[in-house]
């Protein structure tokens, strides 16, 4: 093989492992999912491909509330994560001094415990007659009917808590690698502290925020653990429905159809989002 040919082939050879990975773990399952969603039948008699598109129509009309609720929860939780995560990242990056790594470690320390256990412990803490609420009620500081569990607040707070590090870390990286000379340059050029933040720090950390949104919004929308453990009948998210269809009703085509719609909606959302901001900006956290 000539050198020139090899040079031309090299990029394709390099992309091969990644390409195979994508094909095996992404493309094939999606096709399988799509095929399954168009099947009819049941677990005992087996499923057969009938291109039954009506499944989509009736599932959507039946569960659109949960769909919308999931997107609303995801949006609010993501906004809350920015509101909480940005100041945390900012503080660690600019005021963490020599103990930055220690603070980051503290931030992710709770996440060494399994997702489900972490959420269950919140359930325990926030139970209607649990250590916090029960005690406050006994002291007469809260009315007996007060509750946190099984409210929208509980589920959104759970989502926010569980995905917070995925928001903090990319913002932290963007702030941390910012040339601190730029802040001095800005204040040398007559910017006061607010203007330094607004004109320099914020625009330069936006790619980190975008990356954080991508990393948190998608899993938050499709989450079902928080709604399951912290929510009640009025907090059911689309993830819970899908789980139920699969594991309880064993109605695979319906579960597949819902999954497919959810995934398509998220993909389209991410695509529009990336287009609107330019992928360059989303991916440029690393190129500073």
């Amino acid at each position: 093989m000539t050198l020139r040919m090899r040079a031309r082939l090299a990029p394709y050879l390099l992309i091969l492992p990644g390409g195979l990975w994508l094909a095996i773990f992404f493309v094939i399952p999606i096709i399988a999912l799509l095929a399954l969603s168009l099947d009819t039948g049941n677990l005992i008699n087996g499923f057969r491909e009938t291109f039954h598109v009506a499944t989509y129509v009736n599932q959507l009309s039946q569960y659109h509330t949960q769909f919308i609720r999931s997107f609303v929860y995801g949006t609010i939780a993501t906004a809350a994560m920015i509101a909480i995560g940005y100041p945390v990242a900012y503080w660690i990056a600019f005021h963490g001094g020599t103990r930055k790594s220690a603070y980051l470690f503290l931030l992710i320390l709770p996440f060494f415990v399994t997702f489900v256990l972490r959420t269950v412990s919140w359930q325990f803490l926030l139970a209607d007659q649990g250590i916090v609420l029960g005690t406050l009620k006994n002291w007469g500081l809260l009315p007996q009917g007060f509750r946190v569990l099984s409210t929208n607040f509980a589920v959104i707070a759970g989502l926010t808590y569980n995905f917070l590090p995925y928001m903090v870390l990319p913002i932290y990286v963007a702030l941390e690698r910012m040339d601190k000379g730029l802040l001095e340059a800005a204040s040398d050029l007559y910017a006061n502290r607010r203007e330094v933040f607004r004109r320099v720090v914020l625009p330069l950390s936006i790619p980190g925020v975008f990356a954080g949104i991508l990393l948190t919004f998608v899993p938050a929308v499709s989450d079902y653990v928080n709604a399951e453990i912290l929510g009640g009948v009025n907090q059911v998210m689309i993830g819970n429905i899908i789980e139920n269809q699969y594991l309880v009703n064993n109605n695979y085509p319906q579960a597949a159809a819902l999954s497919f719609v959810l995934m398509a909606a998220l993909l389209i959302g991410v695509f529009i989002y990336a287009r609107a901001l330019g992928t360059e900006d989303i991916l440029s956290v690393s190129s500073g």
């Binding site: 000379g181 730029l182 340059a185 040398d188 007559y190 625009p203 330069l204």
Partner: peptide, 20 residues
């Protein structure tokens, strides 16, 4: 007196141009 209220300007060794 903070830097933003001093009527002098510094040209940084690393230039410190705003990349955005």
């Amino acid at each position: 007196v903070p830097p933003n209220r001093r009527d002098v300007n510094l040209v940084f060794q690393s230039y410190a141009l705003f990349p955005h």
